[in-house]
Design a binder for these strands. Structure first.
Lengths: 140, 140
DNA sequence: TGAAATTAGTTGACTTGGAAAGAAAATTCA
DNA sequence: TGAATTTTCTTTCCAAGTCAACTAATTTCA
């Protein structure tokens, strides 16, 4: 069933990279029409979730290193999706906030991501999708 | 048990990205002492497997787009790890071959990758590691 | 208190990756 | 045959990521 002529096939790191690549590619195609990258979507979802996040916390949740987040946020600011606000308690910290445009955009994007999720879920029978997520979470 | 304050946690694409990031990071640390990237290791393993591969086939197996492979190969050539050979049957094709240095380096790197694999396997009980690989392979 | 150390975020130099165009060989078919 | 098309790989140009250094705010503790 799987075309396993590949010497790397038994390495978890390879299986993971292959699956990640495949899922990322199809999701990227879906998001292209919104003019948005997967990472920007992750940032927006984190922001929407409620609690004010510093850049550092946001970087962890959105799976980005701080410099990469900083630069992504620069782009999102100039696209009008988010804005920076200096935290009152600690003036070194930045709270990032969604703009109205950003919130609307996120809702649109979310629908496509959920479509993609459903498409992925169909590749598994019954509860295997949830099982996969559960196994993956043991790695991070 | 997983710190699930994260709105993205139920998305397969997120769980995958998180796991991939985590595994990639620790493997990258391990490979750093060899001065080699994970992608270069994948290329070398593919080459070692025997059958002559064109750049196109190699790109698929090593999970790289053709331009990325082309550039990586440039670097590997100047590091003395591989060399290009024009295919006799079709002069457009390139067969990439490991040098002796490349083969030796691959064997060294392989030991570290296998260490990493074992470390990962210990995060799961009994057959869950194999199950995870099997589930992941349904995605690619 | 206030100098030293730590923490948060950004910037700069450099590396790598992607999309699209290009070059060269092979194939198609009128 | 040979012009048009397709295939294979590379190059170019630009976008994005990393590491290390930097700035500024906060905390530590002598």
């Amino acid at each position: 069933m799987t075309t396993e002529l590949n010497p790397l096939g038994n390495h978890l790191s390879y299986a993971l990279a292959a699956a990640h690549r495949s899922v990322t590619q199809s999701l990227t195609v879906r998001l292209k029409k919104h003019g948005i990258h997967i990472e920007a979507w992750r940032v927006m979802e984190c922001l929407d979730a409620g609690t004010r996040l510093s850049m550092g916390e946001l970087a962890k949740q959105a799976l980005l290193n701080p410099p990469a987040l900083s630069k992504l946020v620069d782009r999102m600011v100039s696209d009008g999706l988010v804005h920076r606000q200096i935290a009152t308690a600690d003036q070194r910290q930045i709270n990032l906030l969604l703009t109205n445009l950003g919130r609307r955009r996120m809702l649109q994007v979310r629908r496509d991501v959920e479509d993609e999720d459903r498409a992925l879920a169909q590749k598994f029978d019954t509860t295997d999708g949830a099982l996969l997520i559960q196994l993956l979470s043991q790695l991070s």
